[in-house]
């Protein structure tokens, strides 16, 4: 009579292992459900880009490239190869330098972010004039994006290598140091002239 009971006791550790395994699986599933990875890929908290904050003139290491914002300007109008583009808001010109580290690379993503979180990317008339460059050779680039004047104070620029996929990647977020009076000044400033990208230590050709 006692034999079946003994057998059950003998397999006790197996039940224990099974229970522990199920317990761990359940805990894992529960944890995974807590993370918002069921939405868009960029909602995955673990995959968010590593944002590196900086100011104008500071060099930021983005692993594939080293980047620095050199100058910022603004105006109602910008000229590009003979055409005049007038903004209902203001054009912001961000001039920056990107130096690839280990492989030929081009900085492909420029976004402006307002203090209240509004964002502008290089779609429509907005442009990122940059070029591929080789490791150790600086590419001097310029981006032109139009924003409403009320977005100018506290405006930041986000620079990243890929416009498509920034998961796990390093992203530079540079405070452009702009204020309310700057926005007014941009309203009456001379038109901005597009600067074609160039490489090396020389001046623009």
């Amino acid at each position: 009579m006692s034999r079946p009971l003994d057998r059950l006791r003998g397999t006790g550790h197996l039940w224990g292992v099974g229970l522990a395994a199920f317990g761990l699986l359940a805990a894992g599933t529960w944890l995974q459900d807590l993370l918002p990875e069921r939405g868009a890929p960029e909602d995955d908290r673990g995959a968010r880009p590593h944002v590196r904050s900086a100011e104008v003139g500071e060099t930021v290491d983005l692993r594939a490239v080293e980047v620095s914002v050199d100058a910022v300007a603004g105006a109602r109008t910008r000229l590009e190869f003979g055409s005049e583009l007038i903004s209902p808001g203001v054009w912001i010109e961000v001039r920056y330098t990107a130096t690839p580290v280990a492989e030929t690379t081009q900085l492909g993503s420029v976004e402006l972010v307002a203090a209240d979180g509004r964002r502008w990317t290089t779609v429509g008339r907005n442009e990122n004039l940059c070029t591929e460059s080789s490791p150790g050779v600086a590419a001097h680039c310029a981006a032109y994006l139009e924003v409403p004047p009320d977005a100018v104070p506290g405006l930041r620029v986000r620079l990243a290598v890929s416009p498509l996929d920034q998961r796990y990647d390093a992203v530079a977020e540079v405070d452009l140091g702009l204020t309310g009076p700057d926005a007014e000044e941009f309203g009456t400033a001379e038109p901005l002239e597009a600067v074609a990208p160039w490489v090396g230590d020389g001046e623009a050709s």
Binding site: V101, A102, T104, E132, S133, P135, G136, V137, A196, W198
Partner: peptide, 10 residues
């Protein structure tokens, strides 16, 4: 070990 590609550029 740095790799520079031959690309069409100015």
């Amino acid at each position: 070990g740095r790799e520079a590609w031959a690309v069409r550029t100015s």
